[in-house]
């Protein structure tokens, strides 16, 4: 069954086309990722699907309800964690949670099972005001509040931005557990490594979807052989590769540079000789596998 259906959605602000003809579907119980940088249109899409904003064109349904005609039903069926911390800073942890439970006509006790894993981590601070929590604790409280009415669909707008790798990993472990409880999750992130943790992803930039598929399949769209290149001096290496007339793309990737060539009969030995002529040493060139980030950059070019 389809949990989220988006058909030809467009939205503009003054001179900016925030979303241009966006269409995709998310199945029930799926963990679907919107992967793209700031300004790609992710938040606009979230606001349309959570009935906080009208689209200029197109239609969308969430949990079977139309985002315009049935907006009240949607608000009862979805949980939304905005990118910006939006809880009441002057209420305590427990008061915030109680407030959201009451608004949705439920109690903390009734759905405690769903949030237990997450809430126990912040329960020792339940009398602390939300504004005084650390970033990681705020994030856990916001997620608890978004879940307290047992939503069918959960919208998470950049829940891990600015969060360190350890906390990010813990957060994704929590999402996996929620998914097992049957909740459909639409999550956005600028971190390409998190894309691999989703069932399916849409790569989005400048209001357009570049590609939609599973993380494993999406890297197959990469059109060229890709090489890891390393040398004694990273800065000189990047400059030399950028100056090489046959380059197609040159992107630093950790300890390597990912290099693609625009010739079909590329021979790595020729590149090595060129780099040596530029006074680089310890040159190492080997074929590697494209990552989601490589694919994103190639599609966004």
């Amino acid at each position: 069954m389809v949990s989220i259906s988006v058909k030809h959605i467009s939205k503009s602000y003054k001179s900016v086309n925030a979303l241009q003809d966006i269409s995709f579907e998310v199945k029930e119980g799926e963990l679907f990722g919107l992967i793209g940088p700031d300004g790609a249109g992710k938040t606009t899409l979230f606001r349309i699907l959570t009935t906080l904003l009208f689209a200029d064109e197109g239609t969308a349904t969430v949990a079977g309800f139309d985002v315009v005609a049935d907006y009240k039903s949607i608000r009862n069926s979805v949980g939304y964690m905005p990118g910006k911390f939006s809880l009441y800073q002057d209420l305590t942890v427990e008061e915030n949670l109680d407030f959201f439970a009451t608004i949705f006509g439920t109690t903390i006790e009734e759905n405690y099972d769903l949030i237990k894993d997450i809430y126990v981590q912040i329960e020792p601070f339940k009398n602390r005001r939300a504004g005084k929590l650390s970033g990681g604790m705020k994030q856990k409280l916001a997620l608890s509040c978004a879940l307290i009415h047992k939503p069918k669909v959960l919208f998470l707008d950049e829940p891990t931005t600015g969060v360190d790798p350890v906390s990010r990993k813990e957060f994704w472990d929590m999402l996996k557990r929620l998914q097992q409880k049957g909740i459909t999750i639409l999550v956005s992130t600028p971190y390409m490594d998190e894309a691999a943790l989703c069932d399916r992803i849409a790569l989005i930039q400048d209001g357009k979807i570049l590609e939609i598929d599973t993380p494993e399949a999406i890297v197959k769209y990469y059109p060229k052989p890709i090489y890891n290149v390393r040398a004694n001096n990273m800065y000189q290496l990047i400059n030399s590769l950028n100056a090489y007339e046959h380059n197609h793309s040159v992107y630093p990737f950790g300890e390597f540079v990912h290099y693609t060539d625009n010739r079909t009969d590329f021979n790595p030995d020729h590149l090595k000789a060129y780099l040596e002529s530029r006074n680089l040493s310890n040159i190492h060139i080997e074929k590697t596998i494209a990552t989601i980030e490589d694919t994103f950059m190639e599609l966004a070019k």
């Binding site: 793209g36 700031d38 790609a40 600028p190 390409m192 630093p252 994103f296 966004a300």
Partner: peptide, 13 residues
């Protein structure tokens, strides 16, 4: 933070 992957690399250059 939040910058697209191509710009992130230009930034490092």
């Amino acid at each position: 933070g939040g910058v697209d992957p191509i710009t992130r690399r230009q930034f490092w250059e």
